[in-house]
Design a protein around this nucleic acid. Structure first.
Length: 571
DNA sequence: AAATTCAGCTC
DNA sequence: GTACGTGCTGAATTT
C-alpha cells in the first residue's frame, strides 16, 4: 500500500494540548487521504527524530508544502529521506500543464495572482480557530501551511493527473521535480569543495597584490593608465560604459557600444589593453576576493538551487552565481585529500532530445554516432561538421539570418520530421498558443497585453512591433520543447543516480555525494577508491533515464564521465 | 533608496 | 563559427 507522510506546521482541527508548544505535525495517510495512525504532534526540535523513525519503519513519500522550506533543517540534523512530493513545485507545473484534468483545482490555481506562493485558498478547508484556544491567545494560527490544507491540496493534485499515457508522463514529471528538490537541498548541504588557497593564488597571478575593497587592483590600475594615455582621457573610469564609449568615439573609434565581441573587430592600439582590462575586471568583480569571502566557508561553496526556477524547467540558482562559474577559476574546485571529483556531462543532449521528440529516424541514426554533429555532417553537409552544428543550433534557437538561416533548407531536407517539429512549435508560439515538453510541462500563457495589441495594431509601426513580438514568442516556444525536455531528461538522470548511490550506501559502499548540477552536467565528490564504481552508476543512470522517459527508442544519450582532482581538468 | 541599463559569464 | 534560447550578478547610472 502506498503511504504518504504529510508534514505541516500545525493542524487546524487538532490543536496541541499545550497550545504553542508543538512545532510541527505529521500525518500518515493512504492514497485516499485516510489517516493510518493518529497525527503525530512534534515538540521542540524532535522533527528529525520523528522523520527518521517513520522513514526507517514505513518508507512513505513525504509531502511538504515546500521541500526547500523543510528539508535543509532535516539534513542539518543528519536525516535524509528517499521520496517526496513538493506541493508548491507541483502546483507550478499543474498550473500550465495542458494535459492535467480540468476542474476546480486547476481553476483555483490558475487564477492566483502570485504564482510563486499562492495556495488555492477557496478550494481548501476554511481556517478555523480552535474553540478551546480562547481569546487570550492573541494570534490565531492562520490556515496557510496547515496540515489539512497541505493534505487537501496534495489530494487535489493527485486527482488532477489523468489515468492515461499522458497522465503517466505527467506523474513522472511531478515525481522527478520533487526528487530534484531533494537533490538540490542535499547538494547545498554537501557543498562544492573549494580550495581558497588556489583561488587566491590565481587572483594574485591575474590581478597583483591583494588590495582593500574599493581600491583597484595593481594590474587593473596599470592597464587603466595605459587606456587613459592611449585615449587621451586622463580621468577616464574604464568601468563606466558611458565614459568609455565617449572617450573611444572622441579618439575616432566608431562603435555604438563597448561590448568585447564588437571590439575584437576593430584595429586600434587601445583594443588589446582594453580587452585585457575587461577580462581581469570581470574576474575581480564577479569572482574575486570578495566573492571568496562571501560565498566560500569551511572549504565549501554552497549555492542555493531554485528548482524549476527557469520557465523551461531548468534550475536557476541564488548566491554566488553558481551556474556561471567561469572556466578561469575552475582550478579552485578541488577534491578533498583521498577523494576525487567525478564530472559527467550529457554529450550534445538537446539535438538528441529533438531526435527522440520528433521520432526522426534519420536524426536518430546520426545520433548513434558518438559525435552527433559529425553524423549530421556526413549525412547532408558534405562532411562539414561546423556547418552542421551551426544549422542544428539555429534550428533549435530560431536563427533566421546569417549562415545558420542559409543552411536551414538543407537541414530540413535531410531531417524533415525534426525540423518540422521545431517549426511547428515556433508557429504555435507566433499564433499565441502554447506548447509542452515530452512529460507535459507547458509554457505559461502569452501575456494578455500582447494578444490584445495583436488584434488592435493599426499603424504599420504597431503592426511590425506586434509581429516582432510574435517571432520572439515563436523562438521561445521553439526552444522550449527542446530545452524543457532536456531538463526532464537531466532530472531523471540525477534521480536515477541518486537512487543508485543510496542503494550503494545501504549496501555499505560509500558512493560519495552529488555536489553540483549545471543543466546537462553533474559533479560528484567521492572517495577515490569508489570512483570507478560511481562512473559506472553515472552511465547506468543515463541509460535508465532515457528509457524511463522515452521507452525503447533508437536514440543514444551518451554521457562522458571523467575522474579528476579539480574541475579545470574536466574538459 | 530603488529601479534600470550595460556588460559578461554559463549552458 | 554566430549574434539566435534560458538565466544571475555587479557597477554605473537614472529615477
Amino acid at each position: 500500500m502506498q503511504q504518504f507522510a504529510v508534514v505541516a506546521t500545525h493542524s487546524i482541527s487538532q490543536p496541541e494540548p499545550e497550545a504553542g508548544s508543538a512545532t510541527a505535525v505529521v500525518q500518515l495517510v493512504d492514497a485516499e487521504g485516510t489517516a493510518l495512525i493518529p497525527p503525530v504532534q512534534v515538540y521542540g526540535n524532535q522533527l528529525p527524530a520523528v522523520v527518521a523513525e517513520l522513514e526507517a519503519t514505513r518508507r512513505p513519500r513525504w509531502v511538504f508544502d515546500s521541500v526547500h522550506a523543510w528539508y535543509p533543517g532535516l539534513l542539518a540534523a543528519g536525516v535524509r529521506i528517499e521520496r517526496a512530493h513538493d506541493v508548491r513545485l507541483v502546483r507550478a507545473i499543474l498550473r500550465n500543464a495542458p494535459y492535467a484534468v480540468p476542474g476546480e483545482y486547476l481553476t483555483a490555481i490558475g487564477r492566483e495572482a502570485d504564482p510563486a506562493n499562492a495556495a488555492p485558498a477557496h478550494l481548501l478547508p476554511p481556517a478555523r480557530v480552535p474553540e478551546n484556544q480562547g481569546e487570550l491567545f492573541s494570534e490565531p494560527k492562520d490556515s496557510t501551511g496547515a496540515l489539512e490544507n497541505v493534505l487537501a491540496e496534495f489530494l487535489a493534485q493527485r486527482a488532477a493527473v489523468p489515468d492515461s499515457e499522458r497522465g503517466a508522463r505527467l506523474g513522472l514529471l511531478l515525481a522527478a521535480e520533487s526528487a530534484g528538490a531533494l537533490i538540490a537541498a542535499e547538494m547545498t548541504h554537501a557543498g562544492v569543495p573549494w580550495d581558497v588557497e588556489e583561488h587566491h593564488r590565481l587572483l594574485h597571478e591575474a590581478l597583483g597584490e591583494r588590495v582593500p575593497a574599493g581600491v583597484r587592483p595593481p594590474r587593473m590600475e596599470e592597464l587603466a593608465g595605459q587606456l587613459r594615455a592611449l585615449l587621451d582621457a586622463p580621468t577616464l573610469n574604464p568601468d563606466s560604459p558611458a565614459e568609455l564609449l565617449k572617450a573611444m568615439n572622441r579618439a575616432g573609434i566608431a562603435v555604438a557600444n563597448t561590448r568585447a565581441w564588437e571590439l575584437t573587430e576593430i584595429k586600434h592600439p587601445v583594443i588589446e589593453p582594453l580587452l585585457a582590462y575587461k577580462k581581469i575586471a570581470r574576474l575581480a568583480t564577479a569572482n574575486g576576493y570578495a566573492w571568496v569571502d562571501r560565498w566560500v566557508h569551511g572549504g565549501r561553496f554552497r549555492p542555493e538551487y531554485i528548482v524549476g526556477g527557469v520557465v523551461t524547467g531548468r534550475w536557476a540558482s541564488h548566491g554566488g552565481g553558481a551556474l556561471q562559474i567561469p572556466h578561469q577559476v575552475r582550478s579552485a574546485v578541488r577534491a578533498d585529500p583521498g577523494k576525487v571529483l567525478v564530472v559527467a556531462d550529457a554529450a550534445q543532449l538537446e539535438p538528441r532530445i529533438l531526435a527522440a521528440l520528433s521520432r526522426d529516424t534519420a536524426l536518430a541514426a546520426a545520433a548513434t554516432a558518438r559525435d552527433l554533429y559529425q553524423g549530421i555532417a556526413d549525412a547532408g553537409f558534405g562532411g562539414d561538421r561546423a556547418h552542421a552544428k551551426v544549422a542544428m543550433l539555429g534550428a533549435m534557437y530560431g536563427a533566421t539570418s546569417g549562415e545558420s538561416g542559409r543552411l536551414m533548407p538543407k537541414l530540413k531536407a535531410t531531417y524533415p520530421k525534426a525540423v518540422g517539429l521545431v517549426e511547428w512549435a515556433a508557429a504555435q508560439g507566433e499564433a499565441g498558443a502554447g506548447v509542452s515538453t515530452f512529460l507535459g510541462r507547458g509554457t505559461p500563457e502569452a501575456p494578455e497585453g500582447w494578444l490584445k495589441s495583436r488584434s488592435r495594431a493599426s499603424t504599420e509601426a504597431e503592426q511590425r512591433a506586434v509581429e516582432a513580438e510574435g517571432r520572439s514568442r515563436g523562438r521561445f516556444t521553439r526552444n522550449f520543447i527542446v530545452q524543457g525536455t532536456a531538463a526532464e531528461w537531466a532530472l531523471c538522470w540525477m534521480g536515477e543516480l541518486r537512487r543508485r548511490m543510496n542503494a550503494g550506501k545501504a549496501a555499505g559502499v560509500d558512493t560519495g555525494e552529488l555536489v553540483f548540477f549545471l543543466h546537462d552536467e553533474i559533479m560528484l565528490h567521492v572517495p577515490a577508491a569508489q570512483a570507478r564504481t560511481v562512473v559506472d552508476l553515472v552511465h547506468e543512470s543515463a541509460r535508465s533515464a532515457s528509457e524511463l522517459l522515452f521507452g525503447k527508442i533508437p536514440v543514444d544519450f551518451p554521457v562522458t564521465a571523467v575522474i579528476v582532482d579539480s574541475y579545470d581538468q574536466a574538459k
